[in-house]
């Protein structure tokens, strides 16, 4: 599904290397978790994969289902099946959430040569999916993320993911700032999307999210590199001992 090889990334405007040779392979149907200290480059990895400006790939590659995605525009990556649930979802005053969702869904369908969803089919689908995420009609009408609480923003990300049905879902600290109930909702939303054809990259600091979204593989990213890969037990180790032990052992 996703194959990253020896990925080196620096900031475009500064002489600062952030990713220093990341190798990662996410298979369809699997959930990979990435943990790691603050500032280790987790968000940078997710942004580079989704095509945000400001980063320069100096070495290495990233392929989605065999296609080199690093040369694609963000919207082309989205149409190819890439989705990032933002660590900090962006507020867009003046654009209604519903308009935004419909525009996005139809833009992707168009890019893939499919017919647009009819207004009524779209509505039906949004309403059903919003309901399971406890997103009310008012939130759908309001401008994108404007005045949403932290938890509402994260649920809104999952709603977008559910509507867009991507192939590879990256979740960047989707659990941060969520209370236990909200986290359960989000996890259920993610689990409902788990599918043989879909891969997940879940960035988190906490075991508690991984109690709900059970990972197949856990990676530790530190200093711009994946320093350790293991099974779910690796997340427990982080939970119990922090990163210090692992980092010392790998150094």
């Amino acid at each position: 599904m996703l194959e990253i090889k020896n990925l080196h990334v620096k900031l475009e405007d500064e002489d600062k290397q952030i990713l220093k040779g990341v190798d990662l392979k996410v298979e369809a149907g699997k959930v990979h978790a990435i943990m790691g200290p603050n500032g280790s480059g987790k968000s940078t990895l997710s942004y580079v994969l989704s095509g945000r400006d400001g980063y320069e790939v100096t070495e290495g590659s990233a392929e989605l289902e065999g296609e080199d995605i690093l040369e694609l525009e963000p919207e082309e990556r989205a149409a190819a099946g890439m989705f990032l649930a933002f660590q900090y979802p962006v507020e867009i005053p003046g654009v209604g959430n519903m308009t935004f969702l419909r525009t996005a869904v139809n833009a992707q369908r168009k890019a893939r040569g499919e017919d647009e969803l009819s207004a009524s089919d779209f509505l039906k689908e949004v309403r059903a999916k919003a309901k399971t995420l406890k997103i009310d009609a008012d939130m759908l009408k309001r401008p994108v993320n404007v005045g949403f609480s932290g938890g509402e923003k994260k649920r809104n990300e999952i709603l977008q993911m559910a509507m867009l049905e991507p192939k590879l879902c990256i979740l960047d600290e989707t659990d941060s700032g969520l209370d236990v109930d909200a986290m359960k909702l989000v996890a259920e939303g993610v689990n409902a999307l788990r599918d043989e054809g879909r891969g997940f990259l879940v960035i988190t600091h906490y075991q508690r999210l991984l109690d709900h979204i059970k990972p197949d593989v856990v990676h530790i990213l530190a200093g711009g590199r994946i320093v350790k890969t293991g099974g779910p037990e690796l997340a427990l180790e982080v939970e119990n001992n922090g990163y210090a032990g692992i980092l010392a052992e790998e150094a």
Partner: peptide
């Protein structure tokens, strides 16, 4: 730019995203 990237990351093409942001500005 943040808003623009957010829209594009959801699959909205650059031109359409720019228009959407512009209309939002006028709203």
């Amino acid at each position: 730019e943040e808003g623009l990237f957010y829209l594009r990351s959801r699959g909205v093409p650059h031109a359409e995203a720019t228009d959407l942001m512009t209309l939002a500005f006028l709203a």
